[in-house]
Nucleic acid binder design. Structure first.
Lengths: 351, 351
DNA sequence: CGTTATTTTTAGAACGATCTAAATGGGGCA
DNA sequence: TGCCCCATTTAGATCGTTCTAAAAATAACG
């Protein structure tokens, strides 16, 4: 039996359609874009042929000619983190709805990888970039690989170093300080006096802001914060569990902790369990982010809601709006946050 | 003070560099691609000028001319699910390492959105597609919008309907049946006799496979499975928590459950708690996926590990390899899974 | 029927790169 | 000096679209 050699069809282009319909490329192009210029009959003829040949529009070619872009780059420090995964889903939703496509890049918190990812993505000509920077990445290097014209929306974190005035980058930041303040106030109202701030890298901007909000609330309540009530950790469960010991090194030990984020809070819960403490009974704690599992763990986690999916949509909208007015100056948007009280923030045992 | 109007520089192209160096476009192009043909001095001159003008390579233009692609589309039914988020991170890692870029699309389990997403992505000319289909999506429609030539790697689920022979699509599937079998055997060894299969949509292929593995183990142990020991739910925590009641509608009630996946298992834990039962003490359960929180919840969740990040890398490698040999026939890869025993799978109380 | 509007179509350049085939400029050598 | 060879460089077509300006076809009108 003769092996039927699969016919390696070239991709079908405007020219093929034009030839088949005996019209010019230009006419087919007009049909594709639904121009009212073209006659009803021709339009139908052409549309049928497009269908028949299984034509696929080549947007890259069109973009080249039109000098436009139809993609948005999304560069995240950690896609595997549920907070960012939700955020990405939100971005993609809105980007897709606007007829754009999302170019994904994940940097795994490495400034070097971030550079590589950015320079690779930029070559594909995205209309703009949504960037949640890797820890320790700096403004001038990022600027260097993006060029001064690329619209950028910075999410969640500031870059180290400072930007030239010329770059009008937008920012979408959580109200970290206020969120931490709310959490702290809540614990104080519950009756706690010895409260620690737990987790996060002290040099990251979001950690600094959250610590500041914490300190503000403590100061207002005239509560003092011994130096060893500020405990650092990587912002992961595992490292937080490890760092738990440091909390109890001090005497007297705290009775509650405001955690840098939910991941850290969950890690701390684990650590507490290993010390024989019951979070939500003899130790109170709060998180930050309200990731899905915060509601599901036991005890359920009191936390600060930031609605990551909605933030993703918002980021996309902001950037898409910016594409229309590239020359206006960058704006800083700070989104309000909300305290979600659950069961992990119990009153102190001997209140 | 005269407002210094920001100079709206056109993008710098090969031509600009060529002009500045007084060489031809072709020469600059050769420099960009590190061709050995060009003279050392010219190369250096050109490279300096590229640097100076902040040239950015236009890969779309190059791809157009070369008739190549430098992107891979990744279409997922649910990006917000930690399992797929990890998977996506793995894909992007490998795709990036190969010098490609990831085009992201999230369908939210809607076959309609999936169609829209696919037809949008395809226009950007990806070299291939990694697709984890939405529930209820069907082969012929997908085929229709992708065309017969596009390399496709199907992950995690089969499509409904069947494919024309002509399409050599690859598949990367988890060994669902075997995984569920392992989990069931483990519960049987723990001493359980009344075991349910909990959660998932019965019509999804992965659920069918997992149920089949469950039934196989039960049959081998000569344990019978009453019809109401097969409980359906959406594969989410929330719906699983709701569906918990159905488990205890039967008499006698089961003492253990093999859950469709971790999300469902976590939901079931919640539901059990609401009924005053303690998972891991008076009810045993297992999950599937080994998502991050499986190790962190209390009790920690016995589950089946599928290493989603590594699966992502593997999927990317398979697809990239396929790009080299588009005409070979599609392969089906089934990845082994592993039982991770933790504390949720306790023996029955009255063993 | 000739003119002018109006509608519809189109030739050809352009977008920013690559590729082919050929041109250019030395050196070496007879 | 003339010829060949090698290393470099380049003109011009090309990828699949859109755009501009103008041509062609049709309608309208005195």
């Amino acid at each position: 039996m003769p092996s039927t050699h699969a016919p390696i069809r070239r991709k079908v282009t405007l020219i093929d359609i034009a030839a088949a319909c005996d019209v010019s490329r230009a006419t087919v192009s007009l049909v594709l874009r639904n121009s009212p210029l073209v006659n009803r009959h021709t339009r139908e003829r052409v549309q049928a042929e497009l269908q028949r040949q299984g034509y696929i529009y080549n947007r890259a070619a069109a973009n080249l000619r039109k000098r436009t872009s139809s993609s948005i780059a999304l560069v995240l420090n950690d896609l595997a983190n549920p907070f960012f995964a939700e955020f990405a889903a939100g971005v993609d939703e809105e980007v897709g709805a606007a007829g754009f496509v999302t170019l994904l890049g994940s940097t795994g918190e490495s400034p070097e990888r971030q550079q590589a990812v950015l320079s690779s993505l930029i070559e594909h000509g995205p209309g703009g970039i949504i960037l949640s920077p890797a820890e320790g990445s700096d403004a001038s290097r990022v600027m260097e690989s993006l060029g001064p014209q690329m619209p950028v929306l910075l999410f969640n974190r500031e870059l180290g170093g400072d930007l030239p005035e010329s770059a009008h980058w937008d920012r979408l930041m959580l109200d970290n300080a206020h969120g931490a303040e709310l959490a702290t106030m809540h614990l104080i109202e519950q009756g706690h006096r010895r409260i620690a701030f737990f987790g996060g890298h002290a040099q990251s901007s979001s950690c600094q802001q959250r610590r500041a909000g914490f300190m503000k609330a403590m100061k207002r309540a005239r509560l003092k914060v011994p130096k060893d009530y500020l405990v650092e950790s990587a912002p992961t469960r595992l490292d937080a569990a490890r760092a738990c010991d440091a909390l109890f090194a001090s005497d007297p030990a705290p009775t509650a902790a405001v955690c840098y984020n939910d991941a850290v809070a969950l890690g701390l819960m684990l650590g507490l369990g290993q010390r024989g403490l019951q979070p939500g009974r003899n130790f109170a704690l709060t998180g930050f982010d309200n990731i899905g599992e915060a509601a599901m763990v036991s005890p359920s986690l009191t936390t600060i809601s930031t609605a990551p999916r909605e933030r993703g949509r918002q980021a996309a909208r902001l950037l898409l709006a910016r594409l229309e007015h590239p020359q206006e100056r960058g704006e800083r948007t700070i989104v309000p946050v909300e305290l979600i009280v659950r069961t992990s923030s119990c009153p102190p045992l001997a209140a």
